Simulated assay, not measured.
Amino acid sequence: MSKNSNVKLVKIIANLAIFLEFTDEGQLDPDLAVKMMEQMAAELQSLNYDDRKNITKMFQDISREYTGDKCEFIKELPESFGLI
């Protein structure tokens, strides 16, 4: 898979995580949001060390495309997902 494709996949993960984290409880069941975040984390944790390291760097790089709380949230995703 190309580097560009990998970055796009990481952006998709980031945007989904933002949706799950920042959507109002009236619109999204918080328990379901947590369950999905846990499932994403489990899948990402199953990657080999080099892939986890590369994804961590991509999260850091793409965090610059976001502002405020969302930027910080994306920067912290690797740790939240248990990648580092």
Rank of each mutant, 00 (worst) to 15 (best):
F19R: 08
I12V: 10
K70V: 13
M1C: 15
Y49C: 07
L16Q: 08
K75M: 06
L77F: 15
I13G: 00
F73T: 02
P78K: 01
I13Y: 00
S2G: 07
Q27L: 15
K3R: 15
S63D: 04
K11D: 01
D24Y: 13
P78W: 03
I13Q: 01
K53S: 07
M1V: 11
I12P: 02
G68N: 15
S63G: 14
G68V: 11
F19M: 15
F19H: 10
S63M: 03
R52C: 10
L83R: 05
N15M: 13
S63V: 03
N54P: 11
I74E: 00
I74W: 00
L44W: 02
C71I: 12
P78S: 04
M40A: 10
I18F: 03
L20P: 02
M1S: 13
Y66N: 05
S63W: 00
D50T: 13
R64H: 15
Q39N: 08
F81V: 01
S5R: 10
T67L: 07
N54W: 10
L47F: 09
Y66R: 03
L9M: 05
E38L: 13
L28S: 09
L44C: 07
E43M: 09
T67H: 12
A33V: 06
N48I: 05
L47R: 07
L83W: 12
P30R: 08
L47V: 06
I13S: 01
M37F: 06
D69N: 08
E79Y: 12
I84A: 14
L47A: 09
N6L: 07
D29Y: 08
G26T: 11
K75G: 12
E76C: 11
A17L: 06
L28A: 10
N4L: 04
V7K: 06
E72C: 14
F19N: 10
G68D: 11
I55N: 00
A17T: 04
